[in-house]
Every structure is written in structure tokens, then in C-alpha cells.
Amino acid sequence: MKATLESLVHKGLEGETPTRDEIGSVLSSPDEALLDVVAAAGQLRRRYFGDRVKLNYLVNLKSGLCPEDCGYCSQRLGSQADVLKYTWLKPGEAASAAQAGVSGGAKRVCLVASGRGPTDRDLERVGDIISAIREQNPQVEVCACLGLLGDGQAERLSELGVDAYNHNLNTSEDQYAGICSTHDYADRVDTVGQAKAAKLSACSGLIAGMGETDDDLMDVLFALRDIGSESVPVNFLIPFDGTPLAGTWELTPRRCLRILAAARFVHPDVEVRLAGGREIHLRGLQPLALHIVNSIFLGDYLTSEGAEGKTDLEMIADAGFRVEGADEPTMPADRVDLVNARKRGPGTDRAPNA
């Protein structure tokens, strides 16, 4: 294992592609080698990103009632999950939600809307929302996640001020048909390609814990490298009641760390983001994950609660890291409590979860 890890670090520093056998060894590594795996991945994380942690903040613009049947999603067609359902937030509401994240240190705001893909009217709504957000925070990065894109829509989003577009591959091509039937893997690859062609930063990642094998994980990790994903969110399945994957609990904290390390070795100099499900699957090992990833979501996710923003900021500081853009690796005592500050949707006192 030691020789494999040394090879992975060397290749990551030299810009060489690791082999499947090497990544497979990481995914199947024994528990006694886990800290060695984390340390090796941490060398690459420190080399390219130092002690910085980029914070991202999600704003759920439109929740529930999606016509797609993705088996992992609480907003899917036919879902019986108990989640909020609402149509588009008004620009002022979205800007207020975004402000809570920026106040907590977020450099990127992720605007998410359920559905197969946006209409032209939806794009205009997003444009109005971006204008409202940038009135308060002109320098904030904006990432849109609106589903499958049609011809010319990526270019229009770029014109409206979108910096990045998120569309996850989620799993391997071989496994995809078992996860979703209303669109296919190629549709997702095409949308990422459209975003890149429009000069949007491509944000595409995966969901682990859906019954995939190590080969599936390697397939999607290398596919993300091949399509040029510049930001790789790693999600861990939250098996919502009322969805086909309810009751699917396959992950341990140690397995999650191995998956994150594999992502770092395949994407040594790319933003690897610890995303949905981290709190319930990594549990007490979340601080170790910061030695692998360089980016997290702050606060809640689309339809599930995350940790309190204050707790996340304390964890980052306690682990010896600093929020990107901050001068000190400490958190002011009066830092905004993001969970309480956010609004989940019109007329509610809770926040959306991504």
C-alpha cells in the first residue's frame, strides 16, 4: 500500500493520470492503512490548495414536483418524501437567502431549481435573481443547477452572469439505467459539454451509496476527469423515505473517506467538494475529510438539513484550516448562525437543504 500511495502522490504532483488498479487499491484498502490514505491525499490537497476551505451556499429556488424519476431524489416523480414544495422564489427572497451564506464566508452561491430543465422564462427568472444577488454582493460566484440544457441555454446563462453550471454524472454509465429512466447518462454528459462550450466552469460530481461497486466509482471518477469537471462535488446518499432507495444504508465513515481520497487522487488539482450526506455518513470523521477536500457546502442542502453554519465554521478552524478569503483560521463569536438566518421558502422559518 505504501508504494501505491507514493506513486499516487507522485503522479498527482506531476500531472500524470493514476491507474485503475491504484485507485482500486485505495477503495479496498484495509482499515489499518486508512490514515496513510488520508495523509497521502492530504499532500495533494495541501500542495494545490494550502489550508484554504472554500465555502459554498445553496439557495433552493424551486422545490419539489419534478417530472424526472431519479431514484435517489426526494423531489422525483411520485416521491412520497415529506419535503417542501414551492414554485420560484422572488428575486428579493433569493437574494436574502444568498446574503446569509455570504455573511458566513461563502464565495459561491449555488442556485438550484427542480425540473427536467429550464424554460426560456426560467432563464429570465434566474437572471433577475442574479441581478438582485449581485446588487448586494457583486463579487460572489454564481453556480446554476437547473437540469438538462437545450441549445443556446448555456450561452444565455453566461450572458446573465452565471459563472459555473452544476450537473452531476452521479454514477457510472453502466449503473445509470437502474437509477433513472426519464433521461440517460449521455444526456448528462451532453449538458456538461454544453456548459463548457459556453465557457461556464463545469461542476459535476457523483453520489455514493446507491449500490455501486468499486468499478462503478472508478468509472464515474475517471469520466469526470475526462469531461473536464473543474469542481467535483461528492455526495453521499440520503435514503429518503418515500423514494426507491429508502433504507439503503451502505456507507461507513471509513468508506466515505476512501471515496473522497480516490476522488482527490483522480482529481489532484481540482476542487473536490464535500457535499450532501456528509453529516450523517462521516459523522465524527468529518474533520479528517477536510484534509482531503478543499470545499464544502455551508448549512443546509436541497431537501435535507445540514449542520449549523456556526458548527461548520468551528470545525474548519479546529482542524487547522481557514475559510478561503479569511485572514485568520478562527471564527468571530458573533458569526451568523446560518441555519437560523436562512429562509427555506416563502412564509417559512426554516431553510432549504441541497
Score class of each variant (00 low, 15 high):
61 L>C: 02
54 K>P: 09
157 L>G: 05
44 L>I: 04
260 L>T: 14
200 L>Y: 13
286 Q>K: 04
348 T>H: 00
260 L>I: 04
301 Y>W: 04
317 A>M: 00
350 R>M: 10
281 H>C: 12
19 T>H: 03
295 S>V: 07
159 E>T: 14
70 C>G: 01
312 D>R: 05
249 W>F: 10
178 G>D: 15
208 A>H: 02
17 T>E: 15
338 L>P: 10
185 Y>I: 00
68 E>C: 05
16 E>G: 07
159 E>M: 00
281 H>D: 03
313 L>C: 03
322 R>N: 08
124 E>I: 14
89 L>D: 08
44 L>F: 11
30 P>W: 01
56 N>H: 08
108 R>S: 10
283 R>E: 15
232 V>L: 12
209 G>W: 03
106 A>R: 01
203 C>K: 05
169 L>Q: 07
292 I>F: 14
334 D>Q: 14
324 E>Y: 00
129 I>P: 01
106 A>D: 08
49 F>K: 08
24 G>A: 10
273 R>S: 02
17 T>Y: 08
127 G>W: 10
103 S>Y: 11
268 P>K: 02
231 S>G: 07
251 L>T: 11
159 E>V: 01
165 Y>M: 01
160 L>T: 07
6 E>Y: 00
329 P>R: 01
204 S>M: 00
290 L>N: 12
267 H>L: 02
287 P>W: 10
73 C>Q: 00
222 F>G: 05
118 P>I: 09
91 P>L: 06
37 V>Q: 01
108 R>W: 08
288 L>C: 06
200 L>A: 07
145 C>R: 10
